[in-house]
Amino acid sequence: MNGKGELAVSRRGVIVGGTSAVALASLPASGQERAQAQPSASMPPAAMPVAFEVNGAPVELTLDTRTTLLDALREHLKLTGTKKGCDHGQCGACTVIVNGQRINSCLSLAVQHQGDTVKTIEGLGTPANLHPMQAAFIKHDGYQCGYCTPGQICSAVAVLDEIKAGVPSHAQDDITAKPRVTSDELRERMSGNICRCGAYSNIAEAILETAGAKA
């Protein structure tokens, strides 16, 4: 069905256009494309200090202004639990909880987070003392390769808080109603987390069980 010219568009371009499924496998190409981008005389790198709290501990860093929160966590603080999938807001692997709200850490500059409170998968639980959501993912086999899992779990924990706070979703028939924890609600609310292994139904079960246990 390839229409005229379709092949002329890079795969990545079509994905960014938002009609194809997000495919993690295609993503490394974006790095190459960036490296090929026209070199032009740009300003020398600018560095700035930034201080925020990560998993309860204060951190102070001096970073190139271009550093994303994701790269600050992974490359500078060595908190490699948070993953880089697409680096463009399309997969959710980089989801962390900032000031109580889940965000894509790849689409945020570290310097935007002066004074913020950041929670990553490392701060939710430890192997000896798992967060209930982590335990439920293990029990229900909510992963295969595990790459998307830290993002899924951070997102899921925040989703249950969003439902509790009454944040509406596209799955609701009545937008004025208080949202409920249902499989349809969870699937819609978790749509920002792509799983290349397709562990979705087990992920949904793990979240449902955690929600039930909490309620």
């Binding site: 002329a8 568009v9 890079s10 990545r12 371009g13 079509v14 960014v16 256009g17 938002g18 494309e33 981008a37 026209q38 807001g89 959710g92 989801t95 709200q101 889940r102 965000i103 894509n104 689409l107 945020s108 997102s155 925040a158 989703v159 969003e162 944040v167 979703s169 609310r189 978790m190 749509s191 920002g192 987390n193």
Partner: peptide, 29 residues
């Protein structure tokens, strides 16, 4: 968008988001 993006996206920024034309995104085109 997604729950994560909507937590960060603002009213003004949303109005000013740029097109998703695939060729706009492909700097070779």
């Amino acid at each position: 968008a997604s729950g994560q993006l909507r937590n960060k996206a603002t009213t003004a920024g949303n109005l000013l988001q740029r097109t998703r034309c695939p060729y706009f995104y492909d700097t070779n085109m």
